[in-house]
């Protein structure tokens, strides 16, 4: 555990909780892509199956359980409790275009051809693109609530911090995981355009709106 890793995990946790609180407090999930949230629930479910097979640490187990629990709670709020506020007309990204190729790639490029390892690889690849329905929704409506942009910013920071974590681990522990690193770089790149808008607009007190 290093400072980048810990800060990354906490940033990830902050993102998840910001989103849950936003939906809960405003009693609305307008502007949030339910499809992205379903993909994240799928990511955590397929990645953390090792909860059942191996124990790493209390921290590890606690965070995994919290991530999974929050992901399903978010999906529940969007599709059940506050379904009436869900922006289904704009949330039209075709997730099969992500899940099917990612599933195929997980079968072809993995560390070990075993069910758990393939599912872990699937979750890594899927996480790197799971935010696309959310970014697509924002590009369709042309704007995002400020709190939603804070959520996205924390998610992007989490991934960027993990990149620093891997650089650290490579130098000090000789550890590297090519699958995680390549997927992590792709994921971080997807946030770059958003980071730019966040810094130039949201941090200056303006609402994030895209030119028509």
């Amino acid at each position: 555990m290093n400072i980048f890793r810990l800060a990354g995990d906490l940033s990830h946790l902050a993102a998840i909780i910001i989103l849950l609180l936003k939906i809960w407090k405003t009693r609305s999930c307008a502007g949030i892509s339910g499809k992205s949230q379903i993909l994240f629930a799928l990511v955590f479910t397929t990645r953390y199956l090792d909860l059942l097979t191996s124990f790493i640490s209390l921290y590890n187990t606690f965070m995994k359980v919290v991530y999974i629990g929050c992901a399903y709670a978010t999906v529940y709020l969007i599709y059940m409790k506050f379904k009436a506020t869900y922006d289904g007309n704009h949330d039209t990204f075709r997730v099969e275009f992500l899940v099917v190729p990612v599933g195929g790639l997980a079968f072809l490029v993995n560390h070990d051809f075993s069910p758990l390892e393939i599912l872990w690889t699937f979750s890594i690849y899927l996480e790197s693109v799971a935010i696309l329905p959310q970014l697509f929704l924002i590009s369709k409506t042309g704007e995002a609530e400020t709190i939603t942009t804070h959520y996205l910013f924390c998610l992007g920071v989490y991934r960027a911090l993990y990149l620093f974590n891997w650089i650290w681990r490579f130098y000090f522990e000789g550890f590297f995981d090519m699958i995680a690193i390549v997927a992590g770089v792709v994921q971080t790149i997807l946030y770059c355009d958003f980071f730019y808008l966040y810094v130039t607009k949201v941090l200056k007190g303006k609402k994030l709106s895209l030119p028509a």
């Binding site: 990645r47 090792d50 191996s54 790493i56 590890n60 560390h111 974590n165 550890f175 590297f176 090519m178």
Partner: peptide, 10 residues
């Protein structure tokens, strides 16, 4: 490629 058994990263 080098990786520890069991995933310590989240």
């Amino acid at each position: 490629c080098h990786r520890t058994k069991g995933k310590d990263e989240l």
